[in-house]
């Protein structure tokens, strides 16, 4: 059941993005930026938590989930440190993901070479 929900919720996020890409020729970068900001906003108004409770990984694995993590961590940091938390929260909460992307990308660049398919 977990899997079905994750599949449906995660798939739906991708489906919506695909419709935008096909219909409006909007670039991938704009889609990702919009999704992250939407994730922060939806978490801010308290709606995204329900999506996460329902969809599990289907809600956290899409880039919207990155926005969710940013917002949740910011909220916790503000609760703890006050206004300073608005600056420290987001990146602290997502540090593992960003650091992993940077560290791994560097390693891949060491190992691999660009190729034409």
């Amino acid at each position: 059941m977990d899997y079905l929900k994750a599949f449906l919720v995660g798939g739906a996020f991708c489906l919506i993005a695909q419709i935008f890409i096909d219909k409006t020729a909007v670039t991938g970068a704009r889609i990702l930026v919009s999704y992250v900001v939407a994730g922060v906003a939806l978490t801010g108004i308290g709606a995204y938590k329900y999506v996460v409770d329902f969809g599990g990984a289907g809600a956290t694995v899409p880039i919207v989930g990155f926005g969710y993590t940013l917002a949740e961590a910011t909220k916790a940091a503000v609760d703890e440190k006050g206004l300073l938390g608005a600056l420290t929260g987001g990146l602290s909460g997502t540090s593992a993901g960003i650091a992993a992307a940077v560290v791994f990308a560097f390693i891949w660049a060491l190992i691999f070479k660009s190729r034409q398919k």
Binding site: I21, A25, G28, S114, R115, Q116, K117
Partner: peptide, 10 residues
């Protein structure tokens, strides 16, 4: 885009 970037073209 870089060759390894996974995107679709119109």
């Amino acid at each position: 885009f870089p060759l390894e970037y996974g995107g679709q073209r119109t």
